[in-house]
Amino acid sequence: MQTDELISRLSQGLTPVRRVTPPMRAALGWLALAFGVVAVAVALSGFRHDLEHRLMLMHEQVNMVAALATGAAAAVAAFHLALPDRSERWALLPLPFAAFWISGLGWGCIAEFVERGWPALGMSLGCMSFIIGFGLPLTLGMLWMTRHAARIRPGPVAALAGLAAAAIASVGLSLVHHLDAAAMVLIWHGGSVLLVMLLARRWGARAMQAMRP
């Protein structure tokens, strides 16, 4: 087909379109949804029995705030990156928060090691299924909201969506689940978040393609 002909075809019968929601507003909308979903899950599961005690601990507060900041920054970055005219450097936004979060957990591991020797490491599949179970649907929700990125940069947007969803699920999990050892938190929370992010990176582009109008 000739380019001229293509242009005529595209412009004939043009229908009005509704502009996409500005990225900041979309990010806030998605975050509100994510908080809602995770809050319901937390309410249904009940708080961990030692929540009050844990929340008094400085490092616990820092960890939760860092995870929350990582999730929020990743959401903001994803919605910006999904638009063609925004800089690719938006992808870097969650990095400092994520680094802070992970280094906090790592520091916890070292402190525990000094204090008690190797902490007892156990399986915590419950943690994993909580983060994946809430992380993946919330990721899909964001991919649906950013599906216009399918033709621009689907991979990075999907990875950020996975990071945002899993980080917020992890905050919810800290309120529910009992994990004392920082090493276990690092492995099971951090590992699950990474897993959701990698899954999103791997399959997100395909999911966006499928959701494209």
Partner: peptide
């Protein structure tokens, strides 16, 4: 590119 512009015309602010 023309077809992508068409598909993404709602993303322009």
């Amino acid at each position: 590119a023309l077809m992508t512009i068409h598909a993404l015309r709602h993303t322009y602010d």
